[in-house]
């Protein structure tokens, strides 16, 4: 294959990574932006999404698309409900203290992980894709499902942006993010907003996992990489910034896809880590974040 088609293939693979990463990182970024909570258990909500997708799609017989669509709806709802319960039982009782919640979410990480190991087991299990259409380009054929992941992620990101900027719920979330005390003085029930945002963040991670699991596999340890990459993305993009999250996810995903294909995956990780280090040194608030007052 010539360089051009090779590059196109690498870029497409990178965009698939970017799409999933943007959704996962957006969840992490929203939770930190609004609640000031660093959710170390975020990757486990991703893992739960994938494991539940396997369970739901296996339970539903018939065409694989049926099971997948059911998983795409039900798995995020279950993960959101679990996150809401965790927020009420753990984070609220800690009064959302930044240091205490880091320790608490590390505890949540291990609890969720070990529960998954206990009830799901150590095996990696595949989920059948809803369709297996290949798009034939002049140089190579490419999975139609992978392209649909990019489209679905873009659609969800646009919907999230519209909700945040054009709706009353978005206005309430932004007010809570900017100044929670003043938000309360204007009738905004900050505790309820926090609960909703924590559930929403977990649901975004779960949706990303359901989308990726047909080309990956569900495994109880699969939450670690998305967590690390999400932290890289939100540090580069700026915590709480939707635009920054998307730009950084595309940057990291594309560089990962291209550098992995032409050089090595290790070099791609080294470059991402260097990028994080440079951002932390020269622009600690991230590319699109605002400096804290």
């Amino acid at each position: 294959m010539h360089f051009g088609p090779h590059l196109l293939l690498a870029a497409l693979e990178g965009l698939v990574t970017s799409a999933v990463l943007a959704l996962t990182a957006l969840g992490l970024s929203l939770v930190f932006g609004v609640m000031r909570v660093v959710n170390v258990a975020h990757g486990e909500f991703f893992m739960l999404g994938a494991v539940l997708a396997w369970a739901i799609s296996t339970a539903i017989s018939g065409h694989p698309a049926l099971g997948f669509l059911a998983a795409l709806v039900i798995a995020p709802l279950i993960v959101g409900a679990i996150a809401l319960v965790a927020e009420r039982l753990v984070l609220r009782r800690l009064n959302y203290n930044p240091e205490a919640t880091i320790v608490a979410t590390i505890g949540m990480l291990y609890i969720i992980q070990q529960l998954a190991l206990t009830f799901y087991g150590p095996e990696a299990r595949p989920v059948e894709p809803p369709f297996s259409y290949r798009i034939l380009l002049p140089w190579f054929g490419y999975s139609g499902y992978k392209l649909s992941i990019i489209a679905a992620s873009a659609l969800l990101l646009i919907v999230t942006w519209l909700v945040l900027t054009r709706t009353r719920i978005g206005l309430i979330m932004r007010a809570t993010q900017y100044d929670s005390e003043t938000a309360q003085a204007f009738g905004i029930p900050v505790d309820r907003v926090y609960g909703g945002v924590f559930a929403l963040g977990a649901m975004l991670a779960a949706i990303a996992a359901v989308l990726i699991v047909p080309i990956s596999q569900a495994h109880y340890l699969m939450g670690q990489d998305p967590l690390l990459l999400s932290f890289i993305v939100v540090i580069i993009g700026g915590l709480g910034s939707l635009r920054g999250t998307v730009v950084a996810a595309v940057l990291i995903g594309l560089s990962d896809g291209i550098i992995s294909m032409f050089f090595s995956p290790t070099l791609a990780k080294i470059i991402a880590t260097l990028l994080v280090a440079m951002v932390l040194v020269f622009r600690p608030q991230g590319l699109f974040g605002t400096a804290s007052r």
Binding site: L171, I172, R174, A175, Y178, A183, F186, I188, T290
Partner: peptide, 14 residues
């Protein structure tokens, strides 16, 4: 970070 109109909207909501 919000516009004047959005700040007023917050006031009207409660």
């Amino acid at each position: 970070e919000m516009t004047v109109a959005e700040n007023i909207e917050i006031g009207l909501m409660a």
